[in-house]
Write a protein that binds this DNA or RNA. Structure first.
Lengths: 209, 209
DNA sequence: CAGCTTGGTCAACAACTGATGACAACAGTG
DNA sequence: CACTGTTGTCATCAGTTGTTGACCAAGCTG
C-alpha cells in the first residue's frame, strides 16, 4: 500500500522530502499511474488511488494533466516499443521478441508498457492505438521485408505471439513461461518464428494446395 | 444502445413479450452480461447497463445471481473451452487452435468466451482461474503427451499463441488476421506449431550448446 | 515586512456505483 | 371472489467516481 508513496522522498535527504517540486510530483504521478494502470486497468483504479500512491492530492492530477484520460495517455502513449523491429536483421527477430517479453529487472517500479495497454484493452481508444501501432510496424513495415505470400498475416502472427507471451508471462504468470530463463525460451521461439520468416515453403510440405 | 434490449420479445408473439418469465429473464441477463463484459470488461460496465440491455430492472440481477461478481462468474466460469485439447491427436492441434480463434457466425450475440476473460484480466480472480485452466490443460495435461525437453514450456507457448491470435483477431482486429480466412491461417499456424510439437530437435540446428 | 507567483491541500459537487427492501403486477388455486 | 407465491419495478441508501474552485503554504522579489 505505502510501497510507492515514498517515491518522492529521495532528493538526497532521506525522509526529508522537498516540499515544493513540481517536476518531481509530476513524475511521481506518472510513475504511480503507470503502476496502477498496468495492474488494474483504466477502469480499475481511481484518480484518488494514483494520487495517494504518489503521496499527493488527487487535484494535482488535473493541474498537471487535465484529466484522468490525459494522464492515461501520458502513461501509455508513444512508447515506441516496436520501433526496433523496423531495421532489425531477420535472424535477430526471435531474440528481440524474447527481449521484449522479458520481465526486466524492475517490474515493480516500471511495469511492462504492453501490459498497460492490454489491461485497458476494453477502452476503444487504447485498442485503436494498439491496432495502429501494430498495423504500422508489423503489417506494413515489417511485412514488407518478408518474402513469400501472405507476408502481412505472417507478421501479425508474430505480433500475436509476442502479445500472447507477454500476457501469459507477466499477467497470467503461467508456470513454465514465468520460470523459464530467456535462453531456453529463445530456442523454442526460434523454432516457431523461423518458419514464418522463411516464406511459405514449409507450409506446402504436407499438401500443396 | 437498444440493440440487445429486444432480446426478450421473441416468445412467438412479436412485440408482445411474455411478461412473467423467470427463466427467460435470467438467460436474457446472462446474454446481456456476456456481451457487456466481453466488450467493456468487468469494471467497464455497470449492473444497470446490463439490466437495461436485457430489458429489465437492475434489481433482478441481485435476485437471480446475488451480486455483480456472481453474475460475472456465471458468465465467465466453466466454459471448458480447452477441454478438447486433452484427447486431440497431435496433428490436429493447429486446426483446433484455428477453430478456437475463429470469429464464429454470431459474434454479436455470443462473444468469444476467451475475450470475456481477457477484457477483465485486471481482476485477480479472473487471472487466477485463467492460470489454473491453462496450467491444467496445457502445462500439465497436454505437455505430458509431448516428447522431448521443456514440454511444458512448449505447451504454454502454444497457449500464448492461441491467446495472442484471439486478442489480435477479435479485440484489436489487426487488418490481416481479421480478414484472413481460416484455411490460410491454418497453413501458417501449422508452420509455427509443428516444430513445437516435434520435440526440440530443430532448435539445435544453428548451434548445439 | 508586503506582494506575487508557484505548489499543494481541502471541501464540495453532481453523477454514478453496487446493493436493499418496500411495493405493485401477474398467475394459479381454493 | 379472496389468498398466495412468483416476477418485476421503484425509491433509496451509502459509498465512490471524475472534476472543480476556494483556500492555505512555500519561496522569491521589492
Amino acid at each position: 500500500m505505502n510501497r510507492a508513496s515514498d517515491s518522492r522522498g529521495c532528493d538526497g535527504h532521506p525522509g526529508r522530502a522537498r516540499r515544493y517540486d513540481a517536476a518531481g510530483t509530476r513524475s511521481a504521478l506518472l510513475g504511480a499511474a503507470a503502476l496502477r494502470f498496468a495492474r488494474y486497468g483504466y477502469d480499475g483504479c481511481s484518480v484518488r488511488d494514483i494520487a495517494k500512491d504518489a503521496g499527493v492530492d488527487a487535484a494535482l492530477v488535473y493541474r498537471y494533466f487535465g484529466s484522468k484520460e490525459a494522464l492515461f495517455d501520458a502513461v501509455s502513449a508513444s512508447t515506441g516499443m516496436f520501433e526496433p523491429l523496423r531495421h532489425l536483421p531477420l535472424d535477430e527477430v526471435s531474440a528481440w521478441i524474447c527481449d521484449v517479453v522479458s520481465t526486466g529487472p524492475t517490474e515493480e517500479e516500471a511495469p511492462h508498457p504492453l501490459l498497460t495497454k492490454l489491461r485497458s484493452s476494453s477502452r476503444e481508444e487504447t485498442v485503436g492505438r494498439l491496432r495502429e501501432e501494430i498495423t504500422e510496424v508489423f503489417s506494413e513495415g515489417f511485412a514488407r521485408r518478408l518474402e513469400g505470400e501472405d507476408a502481412e498475416l505472417r507478421a501479425e502472427l508474430m505480433a500475436a505471439w509476442l502479445m500472447g507471451i507477454t500476457l501469459l508471462r507477466l499477467a497470467i504468470r503461467s508456470p513454465a513461461l514465468a520460470a523459464t530463463p530467456d535462453e531456453t525460451l529463445l530456442r523454442f521461439l526460434r523454432a516457431g518464428i523461423d518458419p514464418l520468416l522463411d516464406a511459405g515453403c514449409p507450409g506446402s510440405r504436407s499438401e500443396d494446395g
